[in-house]
Amino acid sequence: MYDSKIRFKDLTRSHFNTTLSKSLLDQIKQVADEKGSPYNMFLEIGMEWVLETYYYKGSFHKPTRPTDRVRINTTFNTSLFNRIKARTNRLGKDIYANDLIEEGMKYILSDYKK
């Protein structure tokens, strides 16, 4: 039988659509499942790392974009996602939020594989 779990709405979080590498996302979801946490929490940890690491123009070199990107709809802390979007403008031309989120995903995966 279905057991409904009522959750309180967190007003600091909003739904966002973005495109991310399917292979990276699958690996993040696997880590999240092993840790018993929602995967978007790990995405946010990676986003915080990106904000701390890439501050100045030229500090982030645009990677080649993955060919396996899929569109996802997930919830992020609104302020955090907006800071990521603003950081793309500071870092240079043709750098987008999903590039920075994927960089954070790579960091998370390297950190949790240790």
Rank of each mutant, 00 (worst) to 15 (best):
73 N>W: 02
32 A>W: 05
52 E>M: 13
74 T>V: 12
92 G>Y: 01
93 K>H: 10
16 F>T: 00
102 E>P: 09
79 S>W: 01
17 N>S: 11
93 K>G: 02
11 L>M: 14
69 R>P: 00
61 H>Q: 12
32 A>Q: 06
25 L>R: 01
64 T>L: 09
15 H>M: 12
44 E>H: 02
8 F>D: 00
52 E>G: 15
56 Y>C: 09
33 D>Y: 14
29 K>N: 10
77 N>Y: 03
75 T>F: 03
49 W>S: 03
108 I>P: 11
99 D>G: 07
82 N>Q: 11
101 I>E: 01
55 Y>D: 09
32 A>H: 05
51 L>C: 10
6 I>P: 00
84 I>W: 01
18 T>L: 15
95 I>C: 06
21 S>G: 05
86 A>Y: 02
81 F>Q: 04
13 R>K: 15
34 E>D: 15
20 L>K: 01
14 S>N: 10
94 D>T: 01
61 H>P: 00
41 M>A: 14
26 D>Q: 08
101 I>F: 00
12 T>R: 14
8 F>K: 07
92 G>S: 03
109 L>R: 08
58 G>K: 05
31 V>R: 13
50 V>Y: 11
98 N>A: 04
69 R>N: 09
46 G>D: 08
2 Y>D: 13
90 R>M: 09
1 M>A: 14
30 Q>T: 13
77 N>D: 15
1 M>T: 12
82 N>I: 00
7 R>N: 03
38 P>F: 10
38 P>Q: 14
95 I>S: 06
15 H>T: 11
40 N>K: 03
114 K>N: 12
45 I>N: 07
92 G>E: 02
45 I>Q: 14
101 I>D: 03
28 I>F: 09
35 K>L: 15
42 F>A: 07
106 K>M: 11
43 L>P: 02
100 L>N: 11
105 M>G: 04
100 L>P: 10
87 R>Q: 15
109 L>A: 05
43 L>F: 03
56 Y>S: 15
62 K>D: 06
110 S>T: 10
8 F>P: 00
13 R>D: 04
77 N>S: 08
41 M>C: 06
44 E>N: 02
59 S>C: 09
60 F>G: 05
89 N>Q: 14
45 I>Y: 13
1 M>H: 13
32 A>G: 10
101 I>H: 03
57 K>F: 04
89 N>H: 13
6 I>D: 08
